[in-house]
């Protein structure tokens, strides 16, 4: 088991190294002066250039430069943003948690809704419930996310006025930043009318979460349904039936556990889609997340921000996917290599 963990850690470290190298190369590939791209100072004066040359060890070999770049990455000197002039590390620290928060709620919601519905559809295979759920899922599957977000805004914010149009929290309230996750921050802080602020934050969350979750929910529903049907038709479930176990025993003890196994790797793969969708939705709802921030950076040709933002998102995805893979590897008894020849 320790070996497995070590191997995965190794893999993560290597992947991240490759990513960081790519981001380092980007400094040269982006248009403009590499020094400006690296530091984030748009038009450095000759004095500053000399200072920066020294700071980033521009006179040494390429690989040594990369080494100092890595050190800078770890110590948090990621440079400045062209457009705002603020330090990029603080910008990412501000925007990334907002995105993670939104995606987490969306993922949780799609699991809570998608898994039981998929299970239900699988249980009622070839019946009306199944067909109804399947048609609804095709609908959710094929609606573009941004369009759905627009429709939700049109319906629920503009027509009905139930939910706020954009943003994370009403401008009236001020929540001190502790973790960056707004719901947690509200719970931890000691502002007055806490419950009002909390409700306001939740109301801001509902529409973006729904528009991201729609797609993921349908995917989870479909995979769960298929996986459950396949498990029910598998030999061991048939055998359990033939042994005379009750339907409840068969389903709860054998079918559900086995049909849940293919869901987790799927989750790892869907995470990127989820994050991409979250980025689009963030722009529409002016959610102060990393997607919104990155897209603004792209519009303004803020190369240091693009570089760092890409690196941050990629790191998040790599670590998340690998963690899920590792978890699966440890949980699934089929993957352990113990063979017992003689008993």
């Amino acid at each position: 088991m320790l070996r497995v963990v070590l191997r995965f850690t190794n893999l993560v470290v290597l992947t991240l190294l490759a990513l960081s190298f790519f981001s380092f190369v980007l400094i040269y590939l982006f248009p403009g002066e590499p020094l400006a791209n690296l530091s984030g100072i748009p038009n450095p004066s000759p004095q500053e250039i000399e200072q920066l040359q020294h700071l980033y060890h521009r006179d040494s070999v390429f690989i040594v430069q990369y080494w100092y770049y890595l050190i800078d990455l770890f110590s948090g000197n990621w440079g400045l943003s062209f457009s705002s002039g603020l330090s990029l590390s603080s910008e990412v620290a501000r925007t990334l948690p907002a995105s993670i928060e939104l995606s987490t709620y969306a993922l949780l919601l799609s699991f809570i809704v998608g898994l039981p519905l998929g299970f239900l559809a699988g249980l009622r295979h070839h019946k009306t419930t199944d067909y109804a759920l399947l048609s609804v899922s095709v609908l959710g599957y094929s609606i573009p996310v941004f369009w759905l977000a627009m429709l939700l805004i049109l319906g629920f914010s503009l027509q009905l006025g139930w939910f706020p149009l954009s943003g994370r929290i009403s401008l009236l309230y001020e929540v001190p930043r502790i973790s960056g996750f707004i719901l947690l921050d509200i719970l931890w802080s000691d502002i007055e009318n806490k419950s009002d602020v909390f409700i306001d934050a939740v109301r801001h969350l509902i529409l973006p979460t729904l528009s991201i979750a729609a797609f993921t929910t349908t995917i989870i529903l479909r995979i769960m349904r298929r996986s459950f049907i396949e498990t029910m038709n598998s030999d061991y479930v048939q055998a359990a039936v033939a042994r005379g176990l009750t339907s409840r025993q068969v389903i709860w003890k054998h079918a559900i556990r086995n049909s849940l196994m293919p869901i987790l790797p799927l989750l790892g793969m869907q995470f990127t889609t989820l994050l991409t969708n979250a980025m689009i939705v963030e722009v529409i709802f002016s959610w102060p997340g990393i997607g919104n921030w990155l897209i603004q950076a792209i519009y303004q040709r803020d190369y240091p921000a693009i570089r760092v933002g890409m690196l941050a998102v990629a790191t998040l995805v790599v670590i998340f996917t690998m963690t899920i893979d590792l978890f699966l590897r440890l949980v699934d008894p089929k993957k352990s290599k113990v063979e017992r020849v003689a008993i």
């Binding site: 033939a242 005379g244 176990l245 003890k253 086995n258």
Partner: peptide, 25 residues
């Protein structure tokens, strides 16, 4: 019927491996 089968009839299947649940010991 399940009850009758459970108490009186036992089946040994063709593929012993695939007729056992892979996730349980």
């Amino acid at each position: 019927r399940r009850k009758v089968i459970r108490s009186d009839i036992s089946v040994i299947f063709q593929n012993p491996k695939s007729s056992l649940d892979p996730l349980l010991t």
